[in-house]
Nucleic acid binder design. Structure first.
Ligand code: FES
Ligand code: FES
Lengths: 151, 151
DNA sequence: TCTATTACAACATATTTTTATAGGATTTAT
DNA sequence: ATAAATCCTATAAAAATATGTTGTAATAGA
């Protein structure tokens, strides 16, 4: 399949969780609480957050009372940034990035198709920010609550 | 990364190769020759072609003088058909297909984003046929030849 | 200063999935 | 009968996914 890796998916959820908690007033969010809320192993999240930190998408605060916070404003962090940090590139096939990868790039018709799809995806993911996701999530949560507790 | 599996990529090249050779007049194309032309292990191609056969994208002719041919006209086979046959679905994340996959689908903002991206990709891959890829490949090959042998 | 908390680092290990190769059985044209 | 193909099953190798262990370093607060 064309599959987003779990790293990409978990990493995004991690970032959204950070963004939401930060918005609610938390200074630094500890990873353990994210792991519990999202139901993801903290050990795995520890591995995932390393590249996010290297790419300055999150900042860490060590010691008691420490934790993580967003590296910049939620509206300035695009999904594409997260995926790139976690997976190196944001392309569908390697030959799009590295024309030595397949031997017959110069005559391969499929190449243009993969490239077209990659561009499509990249544009899309460059247009969506953490802020946007947060917004959608809030609306869904509110709707779910209205449904659960009808007055 | 968001990565097209090698199955999807090899399967597409296999289908394009079949289409091209069929166009050139071959009745049945033997897998061994595809494997050699494309530089892919014949054993691996044998596994890849099974779901293509099950989904009637190719027909097989057993025995000596046998081989494979397209199940229908190249213009009626879309990339999406190939990918679906090879990978089950054509979605970026499982939760898009199966709302039990993630627990918090009802409040997850990222879900809509993955769904949006999946729809984008699916539309694109539904719009591209084997015929289209063949066409692009032919043009590229012609251009490469002109460059190699300037009169 | 002491203690609890938290990030950070370096591993090791296990499981699952993907990718790839191998051997042989079956079918069929000649 | 024989050679040429597909077909079928098993296995190996590699990568992705996930958990576990054992620490060290930094910091807030008592
Ligand atoms: S160049 Fe990579 S699939 Fe054709
Ligand atoms: S519902 Fe699957 S990532 Fe949110």
């Amino acid at each position: 399949m064309i599959k987003l890796s779990t790293k990409g998916r978990y990493g995004t959820r991690l970032m959204v969780n950070l963004a939401r908690r930060q918005r609610l007033g938390s200074e630094a969010v500890i990873l353990k609480s994210v792991a519990e809320e999202e139901g993801i192993s903290i050990r795995y999240l520890e591995q995932i957050i390393i590249p996010l930190k290297i790419n300055k998408l999150v900042k860490s605060i060590r010691g008691a009372g420490g934790g993580y916070c967003l590296g910049r404003k939620a509206e300035d962090i695009k999904i594409c940034d997260i995926l790139k940090a976690l997976e190196g590139t944001c392309s569908l096939v390697e030959c799009v990035e590295d024309d030595q990868f397949c031997e017959k790039t110069s005559t391969c018709g499929a190449y243009e198709i993969w490239k077209g799809a990659t561009d499509l995806l990249r544009n899309y993911f460059e247009s969506v920010s953490l802020e946007d996701i947060l917004e959608i999530g809030n609306k869904k949560t509110a709707a779910a609550k209205r449904k659960a507790k009808p007055k």
